[in-house]
C-alpha cells in the first residue's frame, strides 16, 4: 500500500474520515498515519490556540498554543475507554488500535477545522472585544468545530460504521463534556481581567459553573478581593463582596 503524505491525509481527515479509519485500522498500517495525524493535530490546534492567546498577547500566545492540542488529547485519552465499552454494547467491539485511531482522526479533524476558524478569531480579537464576548466566541467556535470530530469518533466506534441515535448522543455528550472540562482544567486561554498571564490556574470548580459565572460577569475573588482562580496582577484593584466580584469587561483592561 502506498504511504499517504501529509496533505492527502489532511484531505481525508476533512472529507472522508471514516474511510481513513477503515483503511488503516490494522496495527501493521499504523506507521503510515500516526505521525501525520499527530502533526496535523499539533499544528492545527496549536495555531488556533495561539490565535486565541493573541487576545492577551505575549507569553499567552505560546501557552495557549501548547495547551489547546493538549485539551483535545486529554479528552480523547480520558473518555476513550468508556466510549469503547459504550459502543461494545451494540454487539461488536472495535480493537484498541481502531479506537485510538478513531480518536486521533477525530481530534485531527477538530484541529483542522479550528484552523479554518483562526483568521476569523484573529480578526475579531484584534478589535479588542469585551472579555465576555471573547469567552462566548471561544465556546461557540469550539462547539462548532468540535461536533464533526465527535461524530467522526462515534461513527468509527460503531459496528459497521452506522450511527445509532443513543450511542452517538452519548458519545457526543461524554466526549464534549470531558473536552470542555479539560479546557477548564488547562485554562486560561483568555485571561480573566485582573489576573496575570500564567501557564495554568489552580484547579477550582467545574466548567459549567465557571463559564456561567464569567458570562454573567462574576469572577471568584479571595478575601482580599483579588481574582482567585489565577495569579493576580499586582495592579488589580481589590473589591469587597460575597466571594464574587462583579466586573465590567468592556474594552482593554
Amino acid at each position: 500500500m502506498k504511504s499517504p503524505n501529509l496533505l492527502s491525509i489532511a484531505v481525508d481527515v476533512l472529507t472522508r474520515p471514516d474511510r481513513l479509519v477503515n483503511r488503516f485500522d490494522q496495527p501493521s498500517q499504523a506507521g503510515a498515519v500516526v505521525g501525520p495525524l499527530l502533526i496535523l493535530l499539533l499544528l492545527g490546534a496549536g495555531l488556533f490556540g495561539a490565535v486565541v492567546g493573541s487576545y492577551d498577547g505575549g507569553w499567552q500566545l505560546l501557552y495557549a498554543g501548547i495547551k489547546l492540542p493538549a485539551v483535545l488529547l486529554l479528552a480523547a485519552v480520558v473518555s476513550l475507554p468508556a466510549l469503547r465499552v459504550l459502543h461494545a454494547q451494540q454487539g461488536r467491539s472495535v480493537s484498541t488500535w481502531r479506537a485510538g485511531l478513531a480518536a486521533l482522526v477525530g481530534c485531527a479533524r477538530v484541529a483542522l477545522l479550528s484552523t479554518a476558524l483562526a483568521p476569523v478569531f484573529w480578526l475579531i480579537y484584534s478589535l479588542d472585544p469585551p472579555y465576555v464576548l471573547s469567552i462566548l466566541m471561544l465556546v461557540c467556535g469550539l462547539s462548532l468545530v468540535g461536533l464533526p470530530g465527535l461524530i467522526t469518533v462515534a461513527r468509527a466506534l460503531s459496528p459497521g460504521g452506522r450511527l445509532r441515535f443513543g450511542p452517538t448522543l452519548a458519545t457526543i455528550a461524554l466526549l464534549g463534556l470531558v473536552m470542555a472540562q479539560s479546557g477548564w482544567i488547562l485554562r486560561p486561554f483568555v485571561v480573566t481581567p485582573g489576573a496575570e498571564l500564567t501557564m495554568l490556574c489552580p484547579r477550582s470548580g467545574d466548567v459549567v459553573t465557571g463559564l456561567s459565572n464569567r458570562l454573567r460577569g462574576r469572577v471568584p475573588v479571595d478575601t482580599e478581593g483579588h481574582p482567585r482562580d489565577c495569579a493576580t496582577r499586582e495592579d488589580a484593584a481589590p473589591a469587597q463582596g460575597d466571594g464574587y466580584q462583579h466586573q465590567e469587561f468592556g474594552g482593554v483592561y
Partner: peptide, 28 residues
C-alpha cells in the same frame, strides 16, 4: 518494528497507541 515516526508520536499520544503494543508490523 514500528517506524520511528510512530514511536516518536507515542511521546505525545501514547495512551492512544497502546493498541499497537503486542502487535507486530506483520499482517495479523
Amino acid at each position: 518494528g514500528h517506524p520511528h515516526s510512530t514511536a516518536a508520536s507515542a511521546l505525545a499520544a501514547w495512551p492512544l497507541l497502546l493498541g499497537l503494543l503486542g502487535s507486530s508490523t506483520q499482517k495479523p
